[in-house]
Structures are given as structure tokens and as C-alpha cells.
Design a protein around this nucleic acid. Sequence first.
DNA 1: GATGTAAATCTAAACGTTTACATTTTTTGA
DNA 2: TCAAAAAATGTAAACGTTTAGATTTACATC
Lengths: 340, 340
Amino acid sequence: MEFKPTIEDVAKLAKVSIATVSRVINNQGGVRKATEERIVSAINELGYIRSAVARSMKRKETHTIGIIVPDIKNPFFPFVVSGIEQKAREKGYYTILSSTNESPIVEEEIVKIFIERGVDGVIITTANETGDHIKLLHDQGIPIVAIDRAIKNFEVDTVLVDNVNGSYQAVQHLILQGHKKIAIICGPQNTTPGHERFLGYKKALEDYNIPLDDKLVIQGDFMEGSGFHATHELFDLEARPTAIFSSNNLMTIGCMKALVDLDWKLGEEVSFIGFDDVEIATFIKPKLSVVSRPMNTLGEIAVQLLYERMNVKGNLPKRQYLLSPELKIRESCQLNKIKI
Amino acid sequence: MEFKPTIEDVAKLAKVSIATVSRVINNQGGVRKATEERIVSAINELGYIRSAVARSMKRKETHTIGIIVPDIKNPFFPFVVSGIEQKAREKGYYTILSSTNESPIVEEEIVKIFIERGVDGVIITTANETGDHIKLLHDQGIPIVAIDRAIKNFEVDTVLVDNVNGSYQAVQHLILQGHKKIAIICGPQNTTPGHERFLGYKKALEDYNIPLDDKLVIQGDFMEGSGFHATHELFDLEARPTAIFSSNNLMTIGCMKALVDLDWKLGEEVSFIGFDDVEIATFIKPKLSVVSRPMNTLGEIAVQLLYERMNVKGNLPKRQYLLSPELKIRESCQLNKIKI
DNA sequence: GATGTAAATCTAAACGTTTACATTTTTTGA
DNA sequence: TCAAAAAATGTAAACGTTTAGATTTACATC
């Protein structure tokens, strides 16, 4: 069946005009019952499938959403993407996905191609929060929703996680357990999540009158390796921290590996909370306490916002969601035994 | 800049016909240097981006690859997808991704939409290996590459992992450590991976003259929960196994959670090997030994095969790759201390 | 300067839909 | 039974490209 029937073939077989066929396949009504039946059976007989390309051509919309993530291998994103994909499909949209490896250059190329392909909207976690390299999208009037990372230089709908609040909760919890020497493994300070999670840490310390000790603030890059090294660094300190707060999932993993290597006893010698839930959290011993982000919801809301913007003609104001992460207390932080 | 310039606008501005502009944007040569320059600057001035939709319409190809996976949240797939996506982009193709939640019904819908959208090829890990629900693709002459799971009822290029070999290696390793009571947590026997991994297990036992004990063969469904329950079941056995082989990553995770719950000491009281590497493997204590699949490579080869089939006019024979997994010995299987 | 040839450029027809508008058919109500 | 109104159907243009084939231009040769 190499032959691909077109709407014209259907029309011919059903002895009607292509306009009528079009009306039937689009459920527009205004077609006599008998005619419709004739058309439907012609469609079935020929195995006709309408060409979305031709349709897009005329309609000037592709029902395609472009997704840009910095690293699909980071377990956070598949969950977000899954939320997006599911919700989008419900609404009749499909997604084209690209991962930039955190490169703004790649990101710019992808944006170009997305425009070429006529995506109706884009959901992006950008590799460069200024957003200059994405300006093109904005100029074309293509709706954008920024997810997890904000875009600074122009206005777009945004779905963020309240990072400050999340890390505040985590650090506060550690403080209430009696810890004073609390270390943080930071993400890059030029990214919103990296910076904000540090701010939450700082604020918690301030609120409880604990001076910030620079030695306990280690810069990482959100990658596993840096979590690993940071932990080693902390271990080597004269005044070792009694608790560690890690700013993301990958660094948490690196940190765990280091703890095992160093035989630094989790929960006993050092308490721990990580930002982001990780697979391992619940079967490592002791189970890891974490700040968990609502990944699926994040994706779903992004689709909702984008959907509205794609389908409402008038101007919508910029909308911004700030989702609260949830502190999941498990077993990795104990009362500090070291007397003050 | 709400106005979207077309090739015609460019032509007008450069004072040439649209045919010449087309030749320039497609690098087809045969255009005088001066003319080309005039066209290029017209393109830049207008910010012209050619419409891939119109192009696809004429060319009858979209340079789009459809990817269908059963569950994007299973950490195995993001790695495969990442391999696909990267390689595809190199070759000028983009990917549209859908996750079926292991539902053949959803899968069929997706296939339909992929056809509607005119994908040039499909890479699929199917939810139903008979492949009947995908027949439509095949009928349309759209190239398919099956990845990780075979398709039975018609011929397609296939990239598989040598499951039999992988589980054989794992079980053999356990046997050589002196284990005789080796349990397996199986995947569904109606899936290729599920069945083959069981076959490898069986074969290893046979080769070493160890009788197969039905009580030690637990059926799971490749989901975390079943790994958890299976482990409980094994623990409750009168004759507890001294080693467990888990057939996939998610069940491994379930199993680990159960071990913690039951306080069944990994490595000491029970040795363990899992199919598929998991994030946790290296910082759980003892570190997990696993059979690891080359996920990235899997995706890359799939793209290569698909690419050839999409761009070669003649008939290619069915090709089948069988990638060997790698046994990564870490610490979770110890010499069996229980004397024989 | 005329001629022939090669190179550059143009014209116009597709590709498969949707849709405004025109036309035909059916229904309604006197 | 007929005209008017409503419903169904048809006609044809458009969407933005690519491309075969026609036409023009440039260049070399004599």
C-alpha cells in the first residue's frame, strides 16, 4: 500500500467535493447524514490519513510544542518532560524535544530550527538566563514558558520552584536539630536555582543568628563530580561541619559516593539534606531527607500556561507560578550530638 | 516584528525570482556571486526564516524522527533518547517523542499521529511485541527501527541487547562465587527482555548442573513494586536464597528498598546482581554489581540504521544488532559463606 | 558583429489542505 | 404548487515552498 490517498481521492470515491470531505474530517457539521457515511466509508476503504503538514500549511499552526532542556539525562527533566508530554497530548499537541547540554550556542541553533518548523510554543529551561539568545522566538511572537529557570531580559510566563523557601526549610530543619556548623554545596551562582538556594541557606542562618562561615560554603556546578569533591573538601576541614545541605540531585549523588569513600557516617557523624528527591533517597541507609520539587506538576502547569497563550488572541499579562517544594523528612538528619 | 516574511518578500527585495532565492537558501549553486550577495542581505534585512512546513509539503519529507518509548521516567530511556537525539541532530533530523505508559492502545494512537505528521522514520520500544498495532507504519512504507524489544510479526531493523548473555554472565558470576540457591526476579515472560533474561539464568544453572528451583523464580512486572514484593517473598521462604538476580533497574530499586526494610544484609546474608546500571549502584554500601547496557550506543546505532533506510532508495536487508552488556563487578556479591 | 553554447534566471505548476463565497438542493409555509 | 429561506454542497484561491522546463543573459569564437 505504497500509494498515499489524498483528500481528493476520497472525494472522488465518495462522489463529493473535497470541501465536503474536509468538513467531515474536521467535524464541522452541515453535512447530510448519508453523505457523511459515504465519505467515512471512502476514508476507511482507502485508508486515508490526513496530512498534518498540508493542514499546518494552511492553518499556520502545527500543534507542536518545542521543549528545550539543558540535560535530559538529569533525572529531574524526564519527570518534567513526562508531565508536559502527557498534558500536551491531552490537549492535542505534540512535543519536539531537544537537550542542549547546557550550551547557549546549541540552544540558539535549536531555537532557530524550532522557528523554522513553526512550533506553536516553546517550553524552555534555558542554559543562559539573560535570554538574549532566545530573543528571536520572542520577536516572532511565539509564546514561551520558562520552567525552573527565569528569563531576565524580556517578559515570559514562568513556572518556578520556590528555591529560597525550599532551602530555607531544609536548613531550618537542620538548625532545629541543633546543628550550627552547616555546610552548603552550592550550584553556580549565576543561575537562578543556584543563587536562590544559597539565599535560603543564608537567610535561615541569619534568622537563627548563626554566623555564615565561608569555609562551609563550597561552590559546585550542579554536576555529580563537584558534589563528590565538595564533600572531600568539607571532610578535610579542621572544623568539619556536622550537617551538609546539597543544592541539587546530582551533587547529592556525588556527595553520597564521597561519604561512602570517606567512611564519613551519614546520620551519625554528619547530617544531610539534599535539594531534589533522588531515586536512592529511600533505600540508602539511613534514608535521605530531601526537599522535593513537584516535577510533574511543573510540566503540567507549563503546558497550561502555554496553551492559554497559544489560544487566546488578546494580550495576557505575564504570569508567574512559584511552586513550593516539600520537605521530606526521613532519616539522614539526627539531633546534633556534639554539645555546644 | 509580527510580520513573517516569505521567500517572495525576499525575492522582491533582492529583485530576483523566488526560484533563485530558493537556490540560494538550499545551496544549490548556479547563482552569480553578486546576485547571491543581494539575496543574502535581503534575507538578513528581513529576518527571513524559511518555512519547514511548506518545504516538507513540497519535498514530502519532514526530517522528523518519531520516538516511542514505554516509559520516559524509567531512567534507562532518557539515556537512550539522549543518544538518539544527539545523533539525529547531527544528521539534520529532529525528534518527536512520546511515552506510552506501556499501553499498546496509546501506542497505536501515537503511531497514527506520527503518520499524520509525516515522520520520516520511527524508533520504537514497543509495548506489544507482536507489532500488530504498528502494522500501519509498515504499510505506509515508513522505516522503523525497533530498539531493546523486537517486533515479531514483520521485519524491521532491530537493535537489541544480548539479554541471554547478560544474565548468563551475572548468574555465572554468582555461581563461581559458590552460590547454589540463586533466585531470579523475572520480568514479564511475554516480553523479549523478560523472557531472555530468564533464559540466561536457566542456561547458567544448567551449565553448572544446578537444578532449577521453581520457588526461587519470582515473576515480576519490571516495576519497582514487584521487586519489592518479590524480595519479601524470597525472604519468607524456608530455604532462603543466598543470592538474588534482578531482571531490571526498577525492580532492583524495589529490591534494595525491601532489603533495607527486612534488614536482610546485602553482600553478607545475600549476594546480589542486577540487570541495568542504576544511579544508586555505586554509593549504596556495598556497591552494587550490575549488568550494564550501552544505552547511548543503543540510541546512536538506531539512528544510524534508520538514517540509512530513510535515505537509501533500494531494498536493504533486515539488519539486527545485538549489543553485549557489560558485567560490572563491584561489591554486592561475596563468596558464599554457607557451606555446602 | 554574428553565432553558438553555457550559465543564470525566470515562469508556472505542483504539494494537500482549508475556507470564503457561489451555487445547488431541500425544506418550509402560504 | 410555488417562492423564499435554510441547508448542503461545490468552486477556486490561497498557504510557502521546490523544481522542471523555458527563457534570457553572458561569454567565447570566428
